Computed example of a mutant assay.
Amino acid sequence: MARPHRIVLVRHGESQGNADDTVYERTPDHALALTERGRGQAEELGSELRELFDRERVSVYVSPYRRTHETLRIIGLDKDRVRIREEPRLREQDWGNWQDREDVRLQKEYREAYGHFFYRFAQGESGADVYDRVDAFLESLHRSFQDPNHPPNVLIVTHGLTMRLFCMRWFHWTVAEFEALANPGNGEKRILELGADGRYALDRPFEYWRRPESYGAVTG
């Protein structure tokens, strides 16, 4: 098994929806483009990643959304050293077709009170649903490591919630721990680095927006 030296998780640059939530009323979520600021974030990220990967090969997985594809294109990795696969299981949490701004804002308030992991948008997914498809993706990813010629790097270009859920599944965080974490900013990355002990560790933690709740340990 050829496990990669590092797995890099990247959140797309700022999109039209991050800058103006009324755009969801007239443009599908998957079709939102990067803003000028978002393109600048992707360019800065590209400089960091090209230096990080140097001349090593990279296996790339990208969410099928326009903003993630644009981020990857602007990152500008050497095409001769990358293998790119579009991966629908890494898409954003589905909120359900066209979105009414006021309804979405109300549902976000409900989600804050109910919990990001379990709350299901009326016509979309819960965080738990996204967790399940991330889990399925990880099974495929681990199988790919059986290839003795697997690249030493994996790059995943995706969304903030999906990044948190990826790490939750990988590191076996509890729901309470997940709920306490904030999304990374647009154009931010987190790196899972393979240590001498054969385990992966995050290069830096996610920020906390509140203290994790504790429901007590289950024994027996």
Results as ranks from 00 to 15, higher is better:
V130P: 00
G124S: 11
A180E: 08
M163G: 05
G115T: 03
H150P: 05
R190Q: 10
L106G: 09
Q107F: 07
H172M: 13
H172C: 15
M168D: 00
F117T: 00
A113R: 15
M168L: 13
G160C: 08
V157I: 09
E188I: 13
S140W: 04
A122T: 14
S126E: 00
I156T: 07
H116C: 06
F166T: 01
L106V: 15
F118A: 15
F171L: 14
V130L: 12
R120C: 08
M168S: 03
Y114T: 15
H159K: 08
C167K: 01
K189D: 13
A176T: 08
G160H: 00
G115W: 07
S144K: 12
T162Q: 08
Y131Q: 03
G160N: 01
H159G: 03
E188T: 09
T174F: 10
L165M: 10
I191M: 12
D147E: 11
A128W: 06
V134G: 00
H142Q: 13
P151K: 03
P151N: 02
F178A: 05
M163S: 05
L161N: 02
R133Y: 01
P152C: 06
I191V: 13
D103C: 11
A113Y: 14
R169C: 09
V157P: 02
C167N: 04
V130D: 02
I191Y: 07
G127I: 09
A122C: 12
A122E: 15
E139T: 07
F166S: 03
G187R: 01
F166G: 02
